[in-house]
Design a protein around this nucleic acid. Structure first.
Lengths: 237, 237
DNA sequence: AATAACTTGCACATCACTGTGCAAGTTATT
DNA sequence: AATAACTTGCACAGTGATGTGCAAGTTATT
């Protein structure tokens, strides 16, 4: 008796699920309060279909946070520079590429309902940052007028602001994010400029990954183009 | 014929109105989504009574923004230091005292619905900041690796973060806010420490106002103490 | 003491959103 | 071509919030 092997998910369904995640990331980055309908529509699906992929809003948010945090944590573990200034700069530079994800993580992290979950998911990243800062304080390369905990928070906020609240299309956007973070860590602006001049690789085009990570929003319209109640183009079925 | 002069508002009503504004400021600083009911209850009034003082949610928010902005703008115009570094430091120091108002303004300013209104209300403050930054760039006392507009945004974000996302009860909180802002403006942390040492008045206890400004939340419980549907103590009738 | 001002509680209409059930249609996969 | 997987649209129930009308009570002011 050939016990019918439960057929694996259809390809279009897999794509649509991924599309929802992208769309949700983009939509929530733009408006943390984005409704399920808005998200589904901007992914080119009906609201009803979304519930076929995610049990509820929380499940969707949880997965967004998890995958986002995974990226961040992976990036953090990839930064191995012993020089704290360089490490912090490189970390910021790499995170800058994940602007939308940073935005979303920040939005969700501010929400009481998911504070716990985000805290856990982002723990490795935060640990890494704290370790870098501590190291810099120990060898005197970073500011010591603030305790590590507070400094970590300030640096995180500065990075978030520089990454998400500055026009990312500007050519100097990435460099700006890095300089901003270093400033918060205690360097003068001239020191940050000098540091980046000495380490041009930090702002490099970073063709040094493994697989090219499919980035945000391969779906249709950006986030919420006056979302009526009809699907945008892009749905596959 | 003694045309009955329309009796002036009762004193308790005036107090209650002020109480609502305080409560709303505190509540919204804690949670930008705070409901009308939550606000009213934390002011010791019923939801219904609130509508006797404010036409709708927007009217309430508008007044909060306006009074907050008025404080900020007044503060900004009071800062007359010619030295850009000192001016920026003093401005931050003074704004730090308005933590709850800064928090609220930031929250509301992020909301699309009130973006326009907040922008107009805060214009004078932003102009003042831009002027200070421009001055600093001209005489080389502030960073010149970022254009004024972007720098203004970054400084604003840094100040907001330092003022609202750091425990305000810490003794160094105020100093921290100032140092943070100066860091973002390009100074190294040692320079900020030196600057504050040279100008102890910046962190002074500021007994140098005119009338003591009635500050946030003379009402009852902080913001939302598991807001049921019954008034907290504090209502006057 | 009389009056107008104020507050309360309740009922009510409205809105936007969430989550689910189900029948009917479309499409990928075997 | 048959089948299971997927999507759609609609209906429906539930939640939580906003804003208003009104009668009854309480309180400041004259």
């Amino acid at each position: 008796m050939t016990t019918s092997a439960p057929r694996r998910p259809r390809q279009d369904a897999v794509d649509n699920r991924a599309g929802i995640l992208s769309a949700a990331t983009a939509a929530i980055a733009h408006d943390p309060q984005a409704s399920i309908n808005t998200i589904a529509r901007s992914a080119g699906l009906s609201r009803r279909a979304l519930y076929g992929h995610f049990a509820d809003r929380n499940a969707l948010l949880a997965e967004i946070i998890d995958t986002g945090a995974e990226r961040f944590n992976r990036i953090a573990s990839d930064v191995t520079d012993t020089d704290a200034q360089v490490a912090l700069a490189r970390l910021t530079s790499l995170l800058w590429q994940q602007a939308a994800h940073v935005q979303v993580a920040a939005s969700i992290a501010l929400d009481d309902a998911h504070l716990e979950a985000t805290g856990k998911a982002l723990a490795p990243l935060r640990h890494a940052v704290a370790a870098i800062l501590q190291r810099g304080q120990n060898d005197g390369t970073l500011r010591t007028d603030v305790d590590v905990t507070t400094l970590a928070r300030l640096v995180e906020e500065a990075a978030r602001a520089a990454i998400t609240r500055v026009d990312a299309t500007l050519p100097e956007a990435r460099s700006l994010a890095v300089r901003t973070t270093l400033s918060m860590a205690g360097l003068s602006w001239r020191e940050t400029v000098a540091l980046l001049a000495e380490h041009p690789d930090i702002l490099g085009d970073s063709a040094a990954g493994d697989a090219a990570p499919a980035d945000v929003a391969p779906a249709a319209g950006g986030a919420a183009p006056a979302a009526g109640d009809t699907p945008a183009a892009g749905a596959k079925r």
